[in-house]
């Protein structure tokens, strides 16, 4: 088995606010093996982005990691000194976001934004060399190097998203956290972006955490999948296993409610109820109030992860 690039152990993230404490991430443990794409899926508010931010220790206050470990090649990010952390970001781990327009500075050219990243991390680098590296990167992204002198507003949405990933990769990190990178894109541009990501992954030998709510995208882009609900991991396994034979009742419900373009697909199913309040989460399994298979134990004890047909499912049904 390949080495782990990232190991998350029993991570808890909380946001103390005036009405109580939001338990955004509860007891999440997962690892990313070298070269794989891990899809992290779930609906709004399930904690998937919070998990992504906590890996780079970019949580906005009052959010904080209250327990657990995040190990990157064996180094614990959780207690890393600030200086070391700054060096890690960008050079070892990069993150790209949903909306490239808010991530790029409208007042600087694309070239300047590449320069800023390079100069921050490689002190004393010559401008000419830095711009050459940026131009090389643009070629990898299928964008003409002439466009380094342009501003973000002169580019289309798809191009801006490609620039974002280019800036993210300019320092050769080996781990990329992509937080809903295709959500703001139209389907054709989304398909182009997913193809590009696949190419870059080979070229740069990347390990990727792909955070998305779109189950179609996650199926196309990931090797393994982790499904989150109410701040907890409910299911994890290879993409093929999870899609072919979802075990957790939440995953089953979620997959049955996804529209599918194929005409022969059955009717959509609906899931009753709404996601839990993370300030006062239900006792036991967070999904139990909506679960069609709820049992007594579900209301009392948080389920551990059990092996079910080749993958892990946090559900008492598989004890």
């Amino acid at each position: 088995m390949k080495e782990n690039v990232l190991e998350i152990k029993n991570l808890h993230v909380q946001f103390p606010i005036h009405i109580g404490t939001v338990r955004a991430v509860e007891d999440v443990s997962l690892n990313l093996r070298k070269g794989e794409v891990m899809g992290l899926v779930g609906e709004s508010g399930c904690g998937k982005s919070t998990l992504g931010f906590s890996i780079l220790r970019l949580l906005r206050p009052p959010g904080k990691i209250t327990a657990g470990e995040i190990n990157y090649h064996g180094r614990n990010i959780g207690n890393m000194p600030q200086k070391e952390l700054l060096d890690l970001r960008g050079r070892n781990i990069s993150m790209i976001f949903q909306d490239p327009l808010t991530s790029l500075d409208p007042l600087y050219t694309i070239g300047d934004q590449f320069l800023e990243t390079l100069r921050t991390h490689e002190k004393g680098i010559k401008k000419k060399i830095a711009l050459e590296r940026a131009a090389d990167m643009l070629k990898n992204l299928g964008i003409s190097p002439n466009r380094l002198s342009e501003y973000p507003h002169q580019m289309s949405g798809g191009m801006r998203q490609r620039i974002m990933i280019g800036i993210g990769l300019i320092l050769n990190p080996d781990l990329l956290i992509a937080d809903e990178p295709t959500t703001a894109l139209d389907v054709i541009v989304e398909a182009q972006f997913l193809d590009l990501l696949n190419e870059l992954r080979e070229k740069f030998d990347l390990t990727i955490m792909f955070i998305t709510h779109n189950l179609g995208v996650v199926a196309q882009a990931s090797d393994r999948i982790t499904v989150m609900y109410g701040g907890r991991m409910v299911e994890t396994g290879t993409a093929e296993d999870v899609f072919a034979d979802p075990k957790h009742p939440y995953t089953q419900g979620l997959l049955a409610s996804v529209p599918n373009i194929k005409l022969e697909q059955p009717e959509l199913q609906t899931m009753p109820g709404a996601p839990p309040d993370l300030v006062n989460p239900p006792p036991g399994c967070v999904f139990h109030p909506r679960c069609p298979h709820v049992m007594d134990i579900c209301k009392q004890e948080v389920p551990k992860s059990f092996r079910a047909n080749g993958h892990m499912s946090a559900c008492w049904l598989y004890k």
Partner: peptide, 18 residues
């Protein structure tokens, strides 16, 4: 447009070029 829609099935491979 139809070919670009992501299909929620990991075994599916796009046939038509984008």
């Amino acid at each position: 447009l139809l070919a670009a829609v992501p299909v929620p099935d990991p075994k599916f491979r796009r046939q038509h070029p984008i």
